[in-house]
């Protein structure tokens, strides 16, 4: 399967595999932050996947995780310093979440499950596909949050680009959307939405994580406000 399509749909890091959720929730208050984080992930993931893939024959299996972490941390440091030098405003907005890319499960996850077993070119393509999937998901979340919470869509960094103002939403701001609760709510609802879509399109019974097989009637009673429902087959 095409790595870009795989990164966006089948193995979307946020909505399907659910990795790297801390920065996802924290920085999606403005669209530009999503773009910045996506670019940072793209550079780190491509670099680390390439190097890990090149070194895969020489790294002993027992110490592979520390080796991966050092490689990843080096790329993160490069990105961190570069961003601080060139785009200080963006670096400030992303703050602590740039150094925290080191412990972002997407990077280590792809290193472990893909780059350490595949040749360099597929590893780089995998990194690019994953980053595109991650960035698009961030953009979607940030777009919804910024639009509802602030009535704008910021595509502006320094003096480049533009900020789109949408008058209707600017008059009816729901500030909660750019505060922490809005992040959790938006992500939860979007995940549910994509679950639904996936179920419709794929029709696979595994699209949902939980079945209601083990639910006892008595306990269900508690949540149902006293009504006992007949369980659906």
């Amino acid at each position: 399967m095409n790595p870009v399509r795989r990164g966006i749909f089948k193995e979307n890091p946020i909505f399907v595999i659910m990795l790297g959720l801390c920065p996802t929730l924290a920085i999606t208050t403005e669209v530009i932050n999503g773009i910045g984080m996506g670019l940072a992930i793209l550079v780190v993931l491509t670099g680390s996947n390439l190097f890990i893939s090149l070194l895969r024959a020489w790294v002993p299996d027992t110490i592979r995780i520390p080796v991966f972490i050092v490689i990843i941390a080096s790329f993160v440091t490069i990105v961190d310093l570069t961003m601080q030098a060139l785009l200080p405003s963006l670096a400030e907005a992303l703050g602590i979440f740039i150094p925290l890319i080191v412990v972002n499960c997407i990077i280590l996850g792809r290193a472990e499950s893909f780059a350490s077993k595949n040749p360099p070119l597929p590893s780089v393509l995998d990194a690019i596909g994953m980053s595109i999937g991650f960035t698009l998901s961030l953009l979607l979340l940030a777009g919804i949050r910024e639009l509802l919470g602030n009535g704008t869509l910021t595509f502006q960094i320094l003096d480049i680009g533009t900020t789109i103002h949408i008058p209707f939403f600017e008059e009816h701001k729901a500030a909660i959307m750019i505060l922490p609760p809005g992040a959790f709510l938006t992500l939860g609802l979007l995940m549910g939405f994509f679950n639904h879509i996936r179920k419709r399109m794929v029709g696979s019974p595994n699209a949902y994580t939980l079945s209601d097989q083990h639910i006892s009637r008595a306990r269900r009673f508690l949540c149902n406000g006293g009504r006992v429902e007949r369980r659906k087959a």
Binding site: P181, F184, G188, N195, L210, D212, R219, R220, N224
Partner: peptide, 24 residues
């Protein structure tokens, strides 16, 4: 776990919505 949650929201999605409420 024992509640009737819309199918698509079961598992992680409802957990995030709950977290949103706690955060609020």
């Amino acid at each position: 776990e024992d509640c009737r949650i819309p199918r698509a929201l079961r598992g992680a999605p409802i957990a995030f919505i709950t977290a949103g409420m706690i955060s609020l």
